[in-house]
Amino acid sequence: MTEPRGQMKSSNGASSTVMALQSASSSPDVQFSSLSPKLEPSNFRRVSRTEDCSPYPIPGLAADILHMRVKEGSKIRNLLRFATARMQGEGNDGSGTSLRQVVFTGSGRGVTKTITCVEILKRKVGGLHQVSKLYYKTVNEIWESPQQGAPGRNTQRTVPAICILLSKDPLDPQEPGYQPPETLSVTTEDVERRRALFRPAHSASLQHTAKRVCMDDLSVCSPQTSKD
């Protein structure tokens, strides 16, 4: 905000220009996404961090739906092991029926991981309808000063968040953010039936394509084409 635009033109050394560019490009994200005072003293200690428990931004969801909260440090394999087990639960141990719907939410730096989880799960399970919603999430933080008796500080930040519903049952196509299941010119029933028949082979081939390594010729990937 404080940086005048003209500074980039007045070249006072290449390195400083780069520095100015970097600081200008990195800070606004933080500034825009937070309403807190810009300078949070570094010696303040964060005592608690509470997130507002807002209802799901997607209308018409059951309260007892499986809700996967993806955090920044969550491991994708842990999340997906749990979610796929619940979604494909039928037949394995016979203990419970498989779920029809699952919600993934993530905020801040966990947004990318949330989307990755959803994309992998869609490929694994197949035939899933999807609705994605974007919203701002409010985070209350209480900061404590290191000096005794000094007043603490209460800040409110808003971070961008995403909420994705995956469903085996059809959803409203008019809902903003709806995505139909990806079918390769076959109907949903077809996919379901094929998945039930060829589950082991199908999943194996999916994993294979996901981590495929091509041994291509040099002529295909010559460095000249990638450079220019």
Binding site: S33, T112, Y136, P160, I162, Y178
Partner: peptide
Amino acid sequence: INRAINIALQLQASSQGVLQLAANT
């Protein structure tokens, strides 16, 4: 992705909620 979401939400906020968002992944 984060920045794209931020931009979309900022656009929506500055339009006083007139603009709508539809996200696909």
